[in-house]
Design a binder for these strands. Structure first.
Lengths: 261, 261
DNA sequence: CGTAGGGTTGACAGCTTTCAAGAAGTGTGG
DNA sequence: CCACACTTCTTGAAAGCTGTCAACCCTACG
């Protein structure tokens, strides 16, 4: 069951040239200042955070970062790339709980029980900073703001979960997909990327699992949104043509005839 | 917009006799030790936590604890009662994000942005401990374990959100309701209450919003589960007759013909 | 070059949503 | 204590949408 052939650890593949997209370069570790930059808290950066170092790990596409059900040993802060966080149901159905990009913390749900409830798989070549549980106390002692940072990250994650629930609450599949696209582009925009064009790193099946619909329905919904001139779809490249129209379209959770009052 | 007529603050209604169900009695404040007891971390209790006090607030049924969209000022730890956490969509649809009972922290999602994304309403007469943001630093200085406590609470909340997503991921409405009942009874059991009998504090409409289905479908699903001899329903009293059968019934996320391989 | 996985589209059955109406329970005021 | 109003809950019927199964195209990869 626990096949660890997916990765050669941090020392394995340092050369596959993602050097441009990776601000870390080839270093095997990064500082707390880097972490704060990824999260977007540049105000906390100082000499103390420069001195606090964390090991890093590179993962190639389809590599497993966290094995579902394994013992909780460390948190991971995404520096580059994309991950899908999954949970396997009793009947074998793979439930996609969410997607993690730069600045997201993976593994927070394991903190309370000591066991990783959710697994994580890289959807492209990615890098993470490793915050081992046993180093956590030392890190907080050196940089007290670090614990507050984690609390904030957890808060952001909760907020994101709520948005996912909002997406799933929509009765229409097209609305769910529209909300998903808007959420993904909004997150990209926070990182300074385009808010109108996005390259989906995940399969239609992953999107469907995330939104609670069949992957065929995802396909159909994307086609419908494209026919409505709201987006343009080319395989995994999606461009939002009419942002205002998409926002208006997405506003319908269910047919609330009484909500007009 | 900000009508605060729902409550007379902590000094208002101290006499409406919920004294038996309320371990706090009539005190207007409680210690960090009480908080730890509610959460279930009795190992952390000591003289320092006894000395750290928090104000409390009583709310009667249908009172608003947090106004959606208000400025984030404090976290609330539920001491008794039940709350529903809601978010109003753009079209006026009230999305129930979750339910909070004793030991749950309300308001964690507002920590990162400084604004309450989620509102909270009491579903019965309830009490909460108020952890004001401006007192947080002092509290952590007095009891360093307090911040770790909040991090754990956030982790638990994330885990619970994942379970909610699992419930909503099921294609069949009966399965969703079955998972909801099992989750609610499991939480009750953690607090020492019966794991087979539960009094639902929320309406069918709230349950439906929480699970992403119409409230009529909730009604029908409960009837169906009762006809299957899995549960017994009497208005808001639900008894699980066949726990094993309910667990088996709930295991079907979707019709995975290939999952049988 | 062949296989495997991902994506799209079509057809049909099944389930849920919606609309509607009535029953049951709750709370208020006389 | 009762009556009235209001909300909640239940059940029925029809329409609509999605899930499922199936086929086909495409790309990637060995």
């Amino acid at each position: 069951m626990l096949v660890h052939a997916e990765c050669g650890c941090a020392s394995g593949h340092a050369e596959p040239g993602a050097a441009v997209a990776d601000p870390i370069g080839l270093r095997a570790q990064c500082s707390a200042s880097d972490l704060l930059r990824w999260i977007g808290l540049i105000g906390e950066i100082g000499p103390a955070t420069d001195a606090l170092l964390f090991p890093m790990r590179r993962l190639r596409t389809a590599a497993t970062l966290i094995h579902e059900g394994s013992a909780f040993e460390s948190l991971y802060l995404v520096g580059s790339g994309t991950f899908k966080c999954i949970q396997t149901e009793g009947d074998g159905y793979e439930q996609v709980q969410g997607f993690a990009i730069r600045g997201d913390v993976i593994g927070l749900d394991g903190l309370s029980e000591g066991r990783c409830d959710t697994g994580a798989i890289a959807l492209e070549d990615s890098t993470v900073a490793i915050v081992a549980l046993r180093d956590l106390d030392d890190a907080i002692r050196a940089v007290p703001a670090f614990e507050r940072l984690l609390l904030r990250a957890a808060s952001r994650e909760l907020r994101r979960k709520n948005m996912t629930l909002q997406a799933m609450a929509a009765v229409g599949a097209e609305v769910r997909v529209a909300r998903f696209l808007l959420q993904m582009t909004a997150r990209q925009a926070e990182l300074g990327f385009s808010g109108r064009r996005i390259r989906l790193r995940m399969s239609r099946r992953d999107i469907g699992s995330h939104l609670g619909i069949a992957h065929e329905t995802v396909s159909r919904s994307l086609t419908t949104l494209a026919e409505l001139q709201l987006i343009k779809v080319e395989y995994r490249e999606v461009e939002i043509i009419d942002p205002d129209g998409l926002h208006a379209f997405q506003q319908v959770t269910r047919n609330t005839a009484d909500a007009l009052s």
